[in-house]
Design a protein around this nucleic acid. Structure first.
Length: 723
RNA sequence: GCGCCCGUAGCUCAGCUGGAUAGAGCGUCAGACUCCGGAUCUGAAGGCCGCGCGUUCGAAUCGCGCCGGGCGCACCA
């Protein structure tokens, strides 16, 4: 019995009353929750704006509505307040009973598929805290959509053929041996030996346990050395072009061992590197980093359904097909002259959003015949929407192979990869490969979780879908844009102190309110590193509270829950279009408006029931016992919490509609805050009046249940047994 | 130059489709349980909601114009 149901019924009653009393139809009636409970549980301010149309005083209108309306049974009474507000008061006892006996889980899934694409980390180095914002927002969206009854498919796009992966390979093959050895953390040696070391660090299969000494951490050190080299030595860039060409050509099904052997032999003999071997190494680097990223995200209980690979998009000619569709639709043209001569461009002049631009043409195919990133993205988006069709009308699709299986013990438990569980598929360049019982893409709605700096290309992609004659699909293509995560100067100084290295930022940069992270320059806070710091801090706090002799595994589990709670709440509570200036002190806080504060409220409430069971043999209020509460008086402060608990569904819907999870975070915080206040004035165990005790138990039962749903299911924040 | 975002308490931020007295947290100061865990609670101080004009019964919220800050506008990915 969520509040939204009562709301709808009351809206219908008012709409009907307006027609009956004034013959007024077509009014958008909307109810709000008043700022104070003495002003009612729901309110309608609509009599005020109607005064002009109906040429009557607002209070008069309100009175007539009250007179004519047939209110739903949940409404106890209606009052007119102030200039003409209509305040509705609910039957508290019966409402509480219905809330307790109703279901609280997700709605049954129906309707078309919704694709959410998130994470999308370049597979060339470890994830940093900026990637965490993407993953947390994306995963929270997935959770909310699922809760609201959508079929959700989670995609994590892997750019395995880009410059960034190539740069790591350039580092291995061409960086001076001393540099390479330093990045590897070994004594300088011959390159063929160093390559052996590098390859031995690759996680080959499965998903490793995340740490800060993984392969992706090695790349984190290696990559900035390569980009620095490009700046020092302009000739070095030639290596990048070579590697990119090799990657584009592909490696067939070359065995990695064989490829490594070929590369090592080439070093010894001084011959050029064989292209296929280079391509194979690049593929191995991308895959290894991907596995490390999956491990990092698993800690936060984030998982995926399918991993579309850019290499497969290229191999399977997605762009060629998209190009044909665009050309047939007349959406693109070959530029004969001017600065874009020889390029295929899409004109955006007809769409209002782009009309004001200096150059409303977007190049999709370069004059050298290669496709731009945006071009590939258009093809990918069409596939996601099920609109990339071949001439015979069949879908132009990937092949698929199982990549891994994953499981998690609860909605906010860590993800574990293993032999069984939910399927994680990856795309394959062999379109004849299928996984029985599984299909991907073809969604009715697509959310691309990508930071705000990608807004322009995302708009182009959307426009391409539109000009292909799919306006509905274009409208159903949503760019979930969010601002970047940056570092406060204080955070930068702390990192420099800890690593003993300077990022070489000048005074001007350090005087700004934040410093942008940069993988290319190695400026950033690695996700696993930060999670480790958070966990260590949480563990210290747990030990302090639980005393000696605590089981180590139990301590670790609690610490993990607190660390994840702190992190996910931090990411969810800030409005998405505001730069998140990361500060260690703030991020490591466990008091106040933080994840642990929310967790603590749920733990504390659960503790009441544990003690109740021990001492009085009483449990949560459910079923028949709940029915007794029908006639019970519910005081204002307890009622406040009950009403707040009833709002979950509409808050979730609002959060999804606005893509603003700060609403959900704030809702959760409000619940916890109400509970903590009540905790001090509404003791349960000590209360001797059985009726009153039952009421308090009932409200707290509702609260505990609600917190588990909001925190674990929606926000992915675990609720530990104790903390 | 054009477009988007941000500007709310000393600091970090909420404030959803315009609604009733603008809210949290941190920090500061003063307090609370012989207790169901103080990762808590109570109270105080602290606001021309960047500025101006407009729309409206009503504006932090909508429109226009300024000011300040950030980000986009590649044959980069």
């Amino acid at each position: 019995m969520p509040l939204s149901a009562v709301r709808e019924a009351a809206v219908a009653a008012i709409t009907a009353a307006l027609e009956e009393a004034f013959g007024h139809t077509g009014e958008e009636v909307s109810l709000e929750v008043p700022p104070r409970r003495d002003l009612g549980d729901l309110a309608w301010p609509g009599a005020l704006p109607l005064a002009r149309t109906l040429r009557k005083a607002p209070r008069q209108i309100a009175e007539a509505v009250v007179e004519a309306a047939r209110w739903p049974e949940e409404v106890e009474r209606v009052e007119i307040a102030g200039p003409g507000f209509l305040n509705l008061y609910l039957h508290r006892g019966p409402f509480l009973v219905r809330l307790l006996s109703g279901p609280s889980g997700p709605l049954e899934a129906s309707g078309s598929r919704v694709v959410v694409e998130h994470t999308n980390i370049n597979p060339n180095k470890a994830a940093h805290i900026g990637h965490l914002r993407n993953a947390v927002l994306g995963d929270t969206l997935v959770r909310c959509l699922t809760h609201l009854g959508h079929h959700v498919e989670v995609q994590n796009y892997i750019d395995d053929t880009g410059v960034q992966v190539a740069d790591v390979v350039v580092g291995v093959l061409h960086l001076p041996e001393t540099e390479l050895a330093a990045a590897l953390g070994v004594e300088p040696g011959r390159r063929d030996e160093l390559i052996g070391t590098f390859v031995s660090r690759l996680p080959r299969e499965g998903v490793p346990t995340a740490s800060t000494t993984d392969f992706d951490d090695l790349c984190w050190d290696l990559y900035p050395r390569v980009t620095a080299r490009y700046e020092e030595d302009p000739g070095f860039a030639a290596h990048r072009a070579e590697v990119l060409h090799a990657v584009e050509a592909g490696h067939g099904e070359l065995d990695l061992e064989e490829a490594v052997f070929t590369l090592e032999r080439a070093i010894v003999s001084g011959e050029p590197f064989a292209r296929r071997a280079v391509a194979r190494l690049a593929a191995a680097v991308a895959d290894a980093n991907l596995r490390c990223h999956l491990a990092t995200m698993a800690r936060l209980s984030v998982a995926y359904d399918v991993l579309p690979h850019e290499s497969d998009i290229l191999q399977l000619g997605f762009w060629q097909r998209a190009f044909e569709l665009l050309r047939e639709a007349g959406a693109i043209r070959l530029e004969e002259s001017g600065k874009n001569a020889g390029c295929w461009v899409m004109s955006l002049a007809d769409s209002p959003e782009f009309a004001e631009m200096d150059d409303p043409d977007k190049i999709l195919v370069r004059s050298n015949g290669t496709v731009t990133y945006t071009g590939k993205d258009i093809a990918y988006q069409l596939w996601k929407l099920g609109l990339l069709t071949d001439e015979d009308g069949t879908l132009h699709d990937f092949g698929y192979t199982p990549y891994a299986h994953w499981d998690r013990e609860g909605p906010a438990a860590p993800v574990t990869y293993g032999a069984s569980g939910q399927l994680l598929a990856r795309t394959s360049s062999d379109p004849s490969r299928h996984i029985p019982g599984h299909s991907f893409g073809g969604a009715g709605r697509v959310y691309n979780v990508i930071d705000v700096r990608q807004s322009y290309p995302q708009k182009v992609v959307r426009e391409a879908v539109r000009v292909l004659g799919h306006p509905e699909a274009a409208d159903a293509s949503v760019h979930f844009a969010y601002e970047m995560v940056a570092l406060t100067p204080a955070a930068v100084r702390l990192i420099e102190e800890r690593t003993g290295e300077s990022f070489g930022l000048d005074e001007e940069a350090m005087s700004k309110s934040y410093v942008e992270m940069s993988g290319r320059r190695g400026i950033g806070v690695k996700a696993d590193e930060f999670l480790d710091v958070l966990t260590a801090q949480a563990e210290a706090a747990v030990r302090e509270r639980s005393g000696e002799g605590m089981d180590g595994a139990e301590t670790a589990s609690r610490a993990r829950a607190i660390a994840v709670g702190a992190l996910r709440y931090l990411m969810a509570k800030q409005s998405r279009n505001r730069v998140l200036a990361f500060d260690f002190d703030e991020a490591l806080a466990f008091e106040g408006d933080t994840g642990p504060y929310l967790q603590y409220s749920a733990v504390r409430a659960a503790k009441i029931f544990a003690r109740l069971a021990e001492r009085l043999g009483e449990g949560m209020v459910e079923g028949d016992e709940a029915a007794h509460l029908r006639e019970t008086e519910v005081p204002d402060d307890l009622w406040e919490l009950v009403l707040a608990c009833a709002r979950r569904r509409e808050v979730t819907a609002q959060a999804v509609a606005s893509l603003e999870f700060s609403l959900l975070a704030q809702h959760a915080h409000g619940l916890a805050q109400l509970f903590h206040k009540l905790y001090h004035v509404h003791p349960v165990l000590r209360e001797e009046d059985a009726t009153l005790r039952r009421l308090r138990r009932a409200v707290f039962t509702l609260f505990v249940r609600e917190m588990h749903v909001v925190l674990e299911e929606l926000l992915g924040i675990p609720v530990p047994e104790e903390m």
